[in-house]
């Protein structure tokens, strides 16, 4: 089952405030660089840039999400919403900028330029998680089309914990608690192939939440769901964020969902943030004409 290591990692992309490993910088001691505003945000982005083949697909000067806050990024399809989440989840490498997650930092250029996260390139020793893995273990990412592993719901929900080496009985108890919280207690023993789309989405959410992440990243969490299921997922998100004090960053093209969920929101168009603000203010009294147009339901590019 062993696969040869393709290439050595060049350098660690994550710096933590702990002592020891090289490149460790705590927020206060960082020399120069961008200052994050607000009261110690859980998730903060600064000067983040991503290009594909010379085309800039994402260029965000600043974005921060606090603990217990739901931040919703809205925007038309192709605006770069998913790219933003993938960069934050360390599934892709930015060309420039840095991201802060709790006390961890991730900087462009420093990170291993692994194009295939989880691929052989970043395997040095199977037991010592690399910096990307450390980073990913601090947050939870639920893709637009969540992929469940074959097995039962419980097996899926405990997976993240088992990957982190949590004892099976502990993992089981925590998973059952989260499942109960999301109203999925009855489905614990069910096989994932029998789940409805709404149930699968909530199972994926439970699987993400069970690891107690610092930040929760959701990509179009209800895009494929009927209104009843969408409402269930939204309730689950609100309750989870409120109860845990985690920072939630949700991207959606659904303006109504954004209004229902968001504490703060931003409009992303062509990779750039057009306007950021308190959700009610942004949607009721947009300052930027493009935001106004988007809120009115007009086509914007």
């Amino acid at each position: 089952m062993k696969t040869p290591v393709r290439a050595r990692r060049r350098s660690a992309g994550v710096v933590s405030s702990g002592r020891g490993s090289g490149g460790v910088v705590s927020p206060g001691r960082r020399s120069g660089g961008t200052q994050f505003c607000g009261q110690d945000p859980a998730l903060a982005v600064s000067g983040l840039r991503k290009t594909y083949g010379g085309r800039v697909v994402l260029d965000i000067e600043e974005l921060a999400v606090s603990r217990g806050e739901v931040f919703v990024v809205v925007g038309p399809s192709g605006a770069g919403k998913t790219t933003l989440l993938r960069l934050l989840a360390a599934l892709e490498e930015p060309d420039a900028g840095e991201v802060r997650l709790g006390d961890l930092f991730r900087k462009a250029g420093q990170a291993g330029s692994s194009r295939r996260p989880g691929g052989p390139s970043s395997l040095r020793s199977p037991g010592r998680p690399g910096p990307d893995v450390v980073w990913r273990r601090r947050l939870a990412f639920v893709a637009q089309h969540p992929v469940l592993f074959s097995g039962t719901v419980l097996e899926n929900v405990t997976l993240g914990l088992r990957l982190r080496g949590v004892a099976p009985t502990v993992a089981r108890d925590r998973a059952l608690a989260v499942l109960a919280e999301l109203g999925l207690g009855d489905l614990a023993a069910a096989h994932v192939f029998g789940l409805s789309a709404g149930e699968a989405q909530r199972v994926a959410l439970a699987r993400a939440l069970v690891t107690d992440p610092v930040a929760l990243l959701l990509d179009e969490p209800t895009a494929n769901l009927d209104p009843a299921n969408a409402a269930a997922v939204e309730r689950a998100v609100r309750r989870a964020v409120g109860g845990r004090g985690l920072a939630a960053l949700i991207v959606t093209h659904d303006l109504f969902q954004a209004r229902r969920l968001a504490d703060r929101a931003a409009l992303l168009v062509q990779g750039r943030i057009v306007e950021t603000g308190e959700a009610c203010r942004l949607f009721e009294r947009p300052r930027d004409p493009r935001t106004a147009a988007f809120v009115r339901g007009e086509m914007i590019l």
Binding site: A89, P117, P126, R136, F141, R164
Partner: peptide
């Protein structure tokens, strides 16, 4: 692969 990575799996 990506789902596993996002869940915190080592390679």
């Amino acid at each position: 692969a990506e789902t596993a990575a996002a869940l915190g799996a080592t390679p």
